[in-house]
Structures are given as structure tokens and as C-alpha cells.
Write a protein that binds this DNA or RNA. Sequence first.
DNA 1: ACTTTTTCCGACGGATTTGCTAGTATAAGA
DNA 2: TCTTATACTAGCAAATCCGTCGGAAAAAGT
Lengths: 142, 142
Amino acid sequence: MKLSTKGRYGVTAMYDLAMHSGKGPISLKSVAERQLISEHYLEQLMGQLRKAGLVKSTRGAQGGYMLTKRPEEITVGDIVRVMEGPIAPVDCLLSENSSSCAKASRCVTRGVWQKVGESIAKVLDEITLADLCLEDQRINHQ
Amino acid sequence: MKLSTKGRYGVTAMYDLAMHSGKGPISLKSVAERQLISEHYLEQLMGQLRKAGLVKSTRGAQGGYMLTKRPEEITVGDIVRVMEGPIAPVDCLLSENSSSCAKASRCVTRGVWQKVGESIAKVLDEITLADLCLEDQRINHQ
DNA sequence: ACTTTTTCCGACGGATTTGCTAGTATAAGA
DNA sequence: TCTTATACTAGCAAATCCGTCGGAAAAAGT
């Protein structure tokens, strides 16, 4: 029931980009240094976020990454889904159709996992990057 | 963000025991057959639940497992904590003290994971094995 | 042109977890 | 006492996770 570092680092990096949004491309090197994440590993994660359309990149010197939308328009749920896949504590909640267990409609425990998944998604989808930036103001600059 | 089969099978097995509670020891073989779980693998999981005090076992012929408490007194959260460890999407939420990241008190994303963890725990701690048995009545015996 | 900075890409490797199997210990009943 | 049913324990193969490494491609400055 743990989030992998992919999800954690992904959110942290996107938060860092949000904190510097409007200042042109931000290099991964600077993100990695500020957030104490391996730069090479972070490259892999940003590749996923780029393919998913949450960030755009500029190659070459003075290049880096930028958000494709405003911080208010990107939720933590968006990021976690890209990094970790669908938010569902068990696989049988996906693919209503075929491969799931035959007695899904009569499965008692399934209801439990469904409630858990919905509860997680609700929390993650209500928090935007802008919220995190505000929180930073509150916590770190009193 | 997935539950492993440990948690899933653990809850399913405990639910099966609850469905047969009051009928003496239930053999793992019968649980495994009804719930389509590998019997030997299930033994491992029940060992953890036994050490945690949620079930008691009787060895030898006619032996098996029984709940140590009434189904109303055991929540899904109890079982998941035994099988998967503390309900926390990231480790830095545990051990407030030393090993966690130095800037925990000023970490913005930490608040997100804390909310997620609390949300999951709330769902799991509100559902008891008795609730699952009632749900079975409703779904499978109309 | 050349150098530097940066993103991009693929492969590899150690550590951990997962899901399962084989074999042993224990107790009940014939 | 012997057989059989059952809990218990140790270990193992495959997958996943969490990075590392080496380099190629692109853009900017000199």
C-alpha cells in the first residue's frame, strides 16, 4: 500500500516546476539539486510526464522543462496516475469486462477496495500544484 | 499504489472464517478451495495473522483456524495492517523522530500523503468482518 | 566551427518483494 | 501404534523497483 518513489519524486518535481513557473525552462539539474533527487533517475520520470503532456521540454543550453498548464489546472492525481498507473488498490477494479474475476458482481471484498480507491482519488484530485505553492508560502515564509 | 495479494487474500480468508464462525476450526484446505487461493501460500499468510492474534489455530486432524474475536470486533484495517504494515503511502509519515527527512516539518508534499493515508485508514477502519457477512447476504442470497 | 549545456535514449544491475513449493512437525482417530 | 490430516518452516524463481552508466542529439553562446 505504498507509493513508489516514482510517484513521490514526480509530484515533488512538478511542485518544483510550479514554484518556478513563468521563469522560462527550468533545468533538471537545478530541480534535482533542490529536491535531492538523482538527476539521471529524474530524467526518466520527466520523460513519462512529457509523453503524458503535463510538461514540455526545451533541449540545449538554457533548456529545461516547463508546465504545459497553469498550476491551478494540474492536480496531484493527474501526476500520480501518470507515474503509477490507475488509482486502484486491486487490479480487478479495472477492466470491468473480461479478464477480471468471474464473480466480480458477487464479490464482497471488491466493494471494500472500490471505496478505498475512490477515497484516494478524491483526496488527490482535489489538490492542485497551486495549492502546494500556497502551502509553501504558509509553512516556509511564515 | 497497489495492495499486494497478501492484503487481498488475508481479508478474503478472514471473511471466509467469519462466514463460518461458531462452527469450530475451519481447515485452510476448505478456505483455499472456496476462495481459489493456493493452500500453501495461504498458510504463510495465516501464520502472520496468528502471530498478530487475530486468529488461533488447532493442529492435527480436524484442526484449522478460528477467529479470536467476534466478526463485529475485527475491521478490515486490522487485517491490512498485519498483512501489509502500517497504512501510510510513504515511509516518511512513520517514525516522526530521526531517520525521516530532515525537513519534514517544512515539507509541502508530506501533507498530501498524510491526507491520503488518513483517508484510506478511515475507510478500512469503518468496515468490520460482520459488515462483509451482511453484504454477502444482500448480494448473494438476494 | 567549436564548446558547453542540456534533454533524450537504451541497457544493465543490485536489492527487495511476491507468489509459490517442498518438506517437517504435530496431533487426532483407527 | 500407525495412519492421516493439518499446521508450520525454509527456501526459491520470477518480477518489480530504484536507480546507475554511457552515450547521442540538439540548441545556445563564443
